[in-house]
Simulated scan of single mutants.
Amino acid sequence: MTDTPTSPPTASFGYEEIPAEEKIARVGAVFSGVAKKYDIMNDAMSGGMHRLWKDRFVRRVKPRGGERILDMAGGTGDIAFRMADSGAEITVSDINQDMLDVGLERAVKRGIDDFVWSCQNAEELSFADRSFDAYTIAFGIRNVTHIDRALAEAYRVLKHGGRFFCLEFSTTEWPGFKDVYDAYSHRMVPRIGKAIAGDEDSYRYLVESIRRFPPMPAFEAMIREAGFTQTRVEPIMGGLVAIHSGWKI
């Protein structure tokens, strides 16, 4: 009796299925290519709405003086800068050094010199167990290869009583708006990416990655499976974007 050969594990890269081991490099190339135009593109794609979503997200986090906060996939610093005046000790981490370099450059221009900038893979953090009071990740978790591993690492590095917050795109449940948004994102976002960042393919991937991300109830279940309790989902614009949260008790 011969063993049946097993296929290597795969992961989604937009609508494409690729070997899981290739995803980190493929996603890395996307963000390295768009790093310098990333924040401009966020304004163009969302009509500036991403700023309001991030403001709301940080209000939910409620950073406090003396806390240690890990902002994962924090790249260009958008979330960290919003927490800068709280007195919290903030570590900004991202798997992509090009994104971190842009964030560090922006921090220097703002006169912010007390952040820790650390290149990290969300699935294999180098931080010790129970290192942080809060873990934030905004528009980043859908790009990791194994979401369950990233959630497990978030749980591991949080102290008991620590809180987890994730801001991510989802699927809007507003009738009519969903169809309009789908048409806009698939047809217009890659064109905007080409016009502003000179990169149509990367923004096509980003749109497709949103479509492949689990719906809100499924992602909330994954957060619970990682060990978090008192999980909550706060839809924005009918679920176009959602704030997910949970506690390590």
Rank of each mutant, 00 (worst) to 15 (best):
R204F: 11
D129H: 15
D201Q: 15
V92M: 04
N121S: 10
S245C: 08
H146Y: 12
Y203D: 10
I90Y: 02
W117H: 09
I137Q: 11
N121D: 15
G65Y: 00
A242Q: 05
Y203R: 11
G161P: 14
E153Y: 08
I95H: 10
A29Y: 04
K62I: 00
R191E: 12
E123V: 09
T172N: 07
A138G: 11
G48Y: 12
T91G: 14
E208F: 11
I243F: 00
D113T: 03
G48M: 09
I192R: 03
R187K: 07
K194C: 02
L240R: 07
E173P: 05
A152Q: 09
A134R: 07
K159W: 07
F127A: 12
A197Q: 01
F57V: 15
S245G: 13
D55C: 09
E105R: 13
E123L: 12
A197I: 11
I18M: 02
M72D: 14
I196S: 13
S131M: 02
S118M: 03
R110D: 00
P217T: 06
I18G: 07
I141Y: 09
V58W: 04
G103C: 05
D148N: 03
E200T: 02
G77I: 06
Y38H: 09
G77N: 06
P214V: 06
R224N: 13
H186S: 13
V157K: 01
D98W: 00
F164K: 01
F81Q: 00
N143I: 14
E220I: 09
D78F: 08
E124Y: 09
F31N: 09
F115N: 02
W247H: 09
V61G: 11
N96C: 11
E220P: 01
G28D: 07
A44H: 09
I137S: 11
K248D: 09
E234S: 11
Y155D: 04
R60Y: 04
V241Q: 04
D179H: 11
R60D: 05
V92R: 00
R212K: 14
A128I: 00
S86I: 15
I243H: 01
T231K: 00
W117Q: 01
V30P: 03
K54M: 00
N121H: 03
A35I: 13
N143G: 01
V116R: 15
S202M: 07
T2C: 08
V30A: 10
Y205I: 06
A122F: 11
K37Y: 13
G176L: 05
R64K: 14
Y135W: 03
E208K: 02
D129C: 06
L167K: 06
S118C: 15
D179A: 14
F132Q: 07
